[in-house]
Design a protein around this nucleic acid. Structure first.
Lengths: 196, 196
DNA sequence: TCGCACGTACACTGATCGGTGAACCACCAG
DNA sequence: CTGGTGGTTCACCGATCAGTGTACGTGCGA
């Protein structure tokens, strides 16, 4: 995992073209020749840099994951109020969804790569766990009751909105509204809530 | 669209093999030769029945959609209490998820077939709209306030749980619990006396 | 008995797939 | 001057892709 920064200029162009093509046209449907052509590079160079298509796929997902996490982190950090911060990832999602109309790149990748040993599976699972843990940290910091339960609920809302992005349904605002309602949880949480 | 019932024996076997293979291995990754082999049929017969791979893909999705709707309908109809009926699709999802560990076949199909003119897009959109409308009908019948808003929220929860099925997160019970809380119009984390 | 629909067997097409080999060039540091 | 790194050019590999053509067999209804 070269890290994209420690990468040769041609390598970066290849990765950029791969991101664009893989996300918008699907991984299996896009051949290495097409990526090489779109990045103005020879197929030979592509293989000198990445070795195999699967490695390029992994690099694409890792890079995308990193970019998304940066956006989420920045959006969260921009919040003064710790309660607002809990739903900040939904604001990030609103921005992110603008350009990314084809849903979740990781869910989509798993759909095309059923082999569980493919690196894509680990990257995808890591990302979702990271988000769930972030929700839990934020909920704890905001003094919410049962932060673990709340975190999974927020995660489901987040993924539901993201996954249905390609459909003609306004799920984003619905999930964001509900998320805020959940976090504000006007009702005093009774002491009889089952532990978790 | 032959309707699966008005189909030749060989045609049904082909469709059954296609469902199995397309769902578990991905559409683009599965070739017609493999489907023919798995259904004990010549590739010639496959093309005599379906004409093109895309038509077979459409038939696969349509058939799957129909099977899923039947399950949901049956689960809803088995409910005496109209309030319980609103969240019955989540009980159906629990059953459905047992065999279908690779998430939503329609979200997955859209990931592989970016062309919006592909019949898969219409089928997928129709399915999600159907579910949203069903939620709205059920919410109205149960006398819930703002049934349209509630319906979209339930849809997001449903899709979130389904889409994240391949990941190692227990999103199904979380979304079902939250759905019930929403329908009972008790606010979020409350629920002290809920039977389960 | 005729014809037709369903299905098999098998060879074949052109295109595309992921991936490789080898020669060559430009640059920069030792 | 020399060697290594990054890159190009181009030809090539075997495999697989979706899809077709043709001839043949079988059962059934008119």
């Amino acid at each position: 995992m070269p890290g994209a920064q420690a990468m040769t200029p041609a390598g970066r162009r290849i990765l950029a073209a791969a991101e664009e093509l893989f996300y918008h046209r699907g991984i299996t449907a896009v051949g290495v020749d097409l990526i090489a052509e779109h990045s103005g590079v020879t197929k030979r160079t592509l293989y000198n840099q990445f070795g195999a298509k699967d490695h390029l796929v992994a690099a694409y997902l890792a890079e995308r994951d990193q970019r998304w996490r940066s956006l989420v982190r920045a959006t969260v950090d921009a919040c003064d109020d710790p309660v607002e911060a809990v739903t900040a990832p939904f604001d990030a999602l609103s921005i992110w969804s603008g350009d990314n109309t084809r849903g979740c790149a990781f869910i989509n990748a798993l759909a095309e790569l059923p082999d569980p040993s493919h690196p894509a599976h680990r990257i995808a699972a890591d990302q979702k766990h990271w988000l769930r843990n972030l929700f839990e940290e934020l909920a704890t910091a905001a003094g919410r009751a049962e932060p673990a339960t709340l975190a999974v609920r927020l995660l489901v809302l987040h993924e539901g909105a993201l996954a249905t992005r390609p459909l003609t349904l306004d799920t984003l605002s619905a999930s964001t509204d509900l998320a805020r309602d959940l976090v504000r949880a006007r009702l005093p949480v009774g002491g009889t809530d089952r532990p978790r």
